[in-house]
């Protein structure tokens, strides 16, 4: 058991996957010399050589399309898209090709590609380097969408994704790359599709993922200290497939739900979580389901911190549902 930051955990998982399976390939834009913008692949090129870790022309559709072709040739491609915002440049390859090949071929072909991308605010990157695009992809059957929030989950989920047989969109919150060191057990593979109860509680379920998990934990601790409320924090970890049993069991226990995400409110994945709770557990609810989210605006460069959900808004939402 060692401690790592999330970026170190990602690098470590890539290293271990490359070492244990010769079909694994890591590539993207400048992943060799610089190890990518965030350094996730630093040192891998030297360790594994130009046939395993290589740069491709800058162009996300090319990177994803090449990955699909490499998978046809029997490889396990783990390409990096530096910024999740640039996933849109490969949207057709992801949604029409990567996600649908298994289905439209009757299960005779699959595209086991793990597509990594950094997402969210955190570097003051403005409207086009700060987005949280998960909801665009959870709407596409055939894609698994994973968003880790800890180093341990980043390691365990990335290993599970690379070992799997289906495409995974692995979205790494860039604001969580460096700030915290967590204990990482390399023996612990985290199943895709399983949510994590990050903190147990009985009064309200706070459902979140990715960049917002630390804020949720902070708010839960504060609520306990200041008001005596017991907040259960659920880190979904995988958005598709959604772990509805864990979600519903929590809401049935607490009778209240607040959903927290960084992406804009309208059509965000929180809407799906709310709908699942409303469809399947409304009889347990003692208060409306509330969402605390990013604004329905692009992410503003100068006001990034104001755009993101903060402690004040989250505490107000918790208060509203507990005192409803």
């Amino acid at each position: 058991m060692t401690t790592m930051t999330m970026i170190e955990a990602v690098r470590s998982a890539l290293h271990d996957a490359l070492a244990s399976d010769e079909r694994v390939l890591v590539f993207g834009e400048e992943v060799v010399d610089e190890g990518g913008v965030f350094g996730a692949t630093r040192g891998l090129g030297e360790a594994f050589g130009a046939e395993r870790v290589f740069d491709l022309p800058v162009g996300e559709a090319g990177i994803v399309g090449t990955a699909i072709g490499l998978a046809m040739a029997g490889m396990r491609p783990v390409p990096e898209i530096t910024f999740g915002d640039d996933l849109f440049a490969s949207f057709e390859q992801i949604t029409n090709e990567l996600a649908k090949l298994r289905y439209r071929s009757g299960g005779r072909f699959s595209s086991p590609v793990v597509l990594r991308a950094s997402i969210g605010a955190g570097i003051h990157g403005g409207p086009n380097l700060s987005q949280s695009p998960e909801a665009y992809f959870t709407q596409t059957p055939g894609l698994q969408v994973v968003v880790p929030s800890t180093a341990a989950d980043a390691y365990g989920l990335l290993i599970a994704a690379i070992r799997g047989e289906d495409p995974v969109l692995f979205l790494e919150p860039k604001s969580l790359y460096h700030p915290v060191r967590d204990a990482v057990s390399k023996e612990e593979i985290v199943s895709i599709g399983s949510a994590r109860i990050a903190r147990e509680g009985t009064d309200v379920s706070l459902v979140t993922w990715g960049a917002m998990v630390p804020l949720a934990l902070e708010a839960a601790a504060a609520a306990s200290e200041e008001s005596g409320w017991s907040v259960e924090v659920i880190d979904l970890r995988t958005l598709a497939p959604l772990d509805t049993p864990t979600l519903l069991a929590s809401v049935e226990k607490t009778g209240r739900a607040v959903i927290l995400h960084e992406a804009p409110r309208t059509g965000g994945f929180g809407a799906e979580v709310a709908a699942q709770i409303a469809e399947q557990a409304i009889e347990f609810l003692e208060a409306p389901i509330l969402r605390v989210t990013g604004a329905d605006t692009p992410v503003p460069f100068a006001f990034e911190d104001d755009y993101r959900p903060d402690m004040g808004r989250l505490q107000a939402a918790l208060r509203h549902v507990v005192e409803f």
Partner: peptide, 10 residues
């Protein structure tokens, strides 16, 4: 066409 290029590379 990109898949073909990728497969050939593989």
């Amino acid at each position: 066409l990109v898949h073909a290029a990728g497969c050939a590379l593989g």
